[in-house]
Write a protein that binds this DNA or RNA. Structure first.
Lengths: 134, 134
DNA sequence: CCGCATCCTATTAGATACTG
DNA sequence: CAGTATCTAATAGGATGCGG
């Protein structure tokens, strides 16, 4: 499906349904648009990880937020949770099929970010400079 | 660039740089991942709009958040602001080149959302049901 | 019409300490 | 090791009224 098609789809959706409760885009963007979800999904895309390994891979997330984000992602079917009854117990998280499929558009966005980050920083700096002069 | 390549890029980035302040992905996702930015970008992708028209197109955003989000998007170079010295004054917002280029990966994500929204809702419902039984 | 400033509340996220 | 509980700080967001 081309970008133009998708844009048409969006226009249609936009015209008929911007209501937050039933709008797929809002629902999904609100979930993976939070501070940590996308980062965790991308990290797990590289390979399955245990709780503390994830915590190390994403250093500045707190245990609390990691737990909560993992629950939410599990609830929506993006990841699965596997408990190994070892001692001490270990729990491994991995992408579910749904999670693997969302990684592709997500990676596209990250790729865009890498490519255009410089332009953004430049625009930001210029804007701030002009604001100071004004 | 293929998805696999991008995934490799991400793995490299992940290994070398998860620091929030210098990480492009974090920077961009934090900006367009907020509650309104992506919605506004997609709305403007359909066509340039004035302030109040935007407010009508995205009904449940407050004037305050609309103003603020538009400023942030302008600051980062995603959109431009055109003032027409009519009476009363009118201001039109439109996508800058940077904004037009980010719409493509964004639309891909929205397309994904449309396609998989049913699966997510299903997973969510099932998870909640199981949680109740437990 | 545009949008800024103020006030207020709800949500989010970090730190810390504790449990099986 | 993998969480949970509690408290607190910071931020996001809504309502409203004023000024250009």
């Amino acid at each position: 499906m081309s970008s133009a098609d998708l844009l048409g789809m969006f226009a249609l959706w936009q015209a008929t349904n911007v209501d937050a409760s039933t709008c797929p885009a809002r629902d999904v963007l609100d979930r993976i648009g939070d501070k940590w979800s996308s980062l965790i999904l991308l990290t797990l895309a590289v390979g399955a990880l245990r709780f503390s390994a994830l915590n190390r891979a994403v250093p500045d997330i707190s245990k609390r937020m990691l737990t909560q984000t993992l629950r939410d992602l599990e609830r929506d079917g993006f990841i699965t949770r596997h408990v190994f009854p070892t001692k001490p117990p270990s729990v491994e998280y991995r992408l579910a099929p749904l999670g693997r499929s969302v990684v592709e558009p997500l990676v596209a966005l990250v790729g865009w970010a890498q490519t255009h980050h410089g332009a953004i920083r430049e625009a930001r700096q210029q804007f701030d400079t002009n604001a100071q002069n004004a």
